[in-house]
C-alpha cells in the first residue's frame, strides 16, 4: 500500500478537517505528522495544528525505562514482604485496641480488691444484653464506696437473645451504673474482651465490620478510663 503524502495546501486542509472531526484514518494522521515535521516554515494559521499533531506523535513515541515495571512491582505488590504487610495491616488497629483493653484489665485485677469504682459504660450492645438478662435487678446509682452485690453475670454473645430496643429503653433509661465489686469488674472486663474478640472474628469475615468493632472497643476503653 502506498504511503499517503500531503503535497498541497488543499490536501493539508482536508486532512486537518478529518483530524478535527476525529474521522482521520491512522495513515492520514501519519501523513500530517510527516508533513509538519518536514515543513518547519508554514503559514502561522497552522501553528496550533502543527503543535497538536506533533505533540501527539511525540507522546506516542515516548519510551519508558526498561526496568519501569520491575521498579513498580518492587515498590508495590511484587515484593512478598509488602504484600504480606498489606494483607495484615487491616488488623493492626483492632489488635492494638484489644491489647490496650487487656492492659487495662490487668491493671484493674491487680488493684488487690480495693473498692475501686468502675464505671460500666461498655458498648451499647453489651449493656442492652445485660439489661435484658435481669431487668428487675438493675440497681439505682449508688455511692462509690458502697458494696454492691453482683447483679448480672455477662454471658457470651451467642447465648443471649436479642430484644427490641424500646423494651430495653423502658427497663433502663441510662446505660450507666457503678460497680464497686472488683470481682464483678473483672467479670465485666472479661466479658468485654470476649465480645471484642468475637466481634473482630466476625470482622475477619466482613472487613466492613471492622469500624463497629473498633467503636465498641473504644467505647469500652473510654468507660474504663472514667
Amino acid at each position: 500500500m502506498n504511503k499517503l503524502t500531503i503535497t498541497s495546501s488543499a490536501q493539508l486542509r482536508e486532512a486537518l478537517e478529518q483530524f478535527y472531526a476525529a474521522t482521520a484514518a491512522p495513515e492520514v494522521i501519519e501523513a500530517l505528522t510527516d508533513y509538519f515535521r518536514t515543513h518547519p516554515q508554514l503559514d502561522p494559521e497552522f501553528e496550533a495544528d502543527r503543535a497538536i499533531i506533533l505533540a501527539m506523535a511525540d507522546a506516542a513515541a515516548i519510551e519508558e525505562p526498561a526496568d519501569m515495571e520491575q521498579r513498580i512491582l518492587a515498590a508495590t505488590c511484587g515484593s512478598p514482604r509488602r504484600a504480606i504487610w498489606h494483607g495484615i495491616r487491616l488488623w493492626h488497629a483492632a489488635a492494638a485496641a484489644v491489647a490496650v483493653i487487656a492492659v487495662a484489665a490487668m491493671w484493674l485485677l491487680n488493684s488487690n480488691g480495693t473498692a475501686q469504682p468502675v464505671q460500666q459504660l461498655v458498648a451499647k450492645v453489651d449493656t442492652v444484653e445485660t439489661v435484658r438478662q435481669q431487668p428487675a435487678e438493675l440497681p439505682q446509682a449508688q455511692p462509690a464506696n458502697t458494696a454492691t452485690a453482683p447483679t448480672a453475670t455477662p454471658q457470651p454473645v451467642d447465648a443471649v437473645q436479642r430484644q427490641p430496643a424500646q423494651q430495653v429503653a423502658a427497663a433502663q433509661p441510662s446505660h450507666t451504673r457503678e460497680v464497686t465489686d472488683p470481682e464483678e469488674a473483672a467479670q465485666i472486663l472479661a466479658s468485654t474482651l470476649i465480645r471484642a474478640r468475637q466481634t473482630i472474628a466476625q470482622a475477619s469475615q466482613a472487613p466492613a465490620a471492622i469500624d463497629p468493632a473498633l467503636n465498641s472497643i473504644n467505647n469500652s476503653l473510654n468507660s474504663l478510663r472514667q
Binding site: D58, I62, E64, R71, T76
Partner: peptide
C-alpha cells in the same frame, strides 16, 4: 500495574522529563 506505559507517557507529557515522570509513576503506583 499494566497501565504503566500509558501513565509514563502522560507523566512525561506533563513534566517534560523522563526521570521525574518515572518517579511520579512509581509514587502513584
Amino acid at each position: 500495574v499494566v497501565m504503566h506505559p500509558s501513565m509514563f507517557r502522560a507523566a512525561v507529557a506533563i513534566l517534560g522529563n523522563a526521570d521525574d515522570a518515572a518517579d511520579a509513576v512509581q509514587d502513584t503506583m
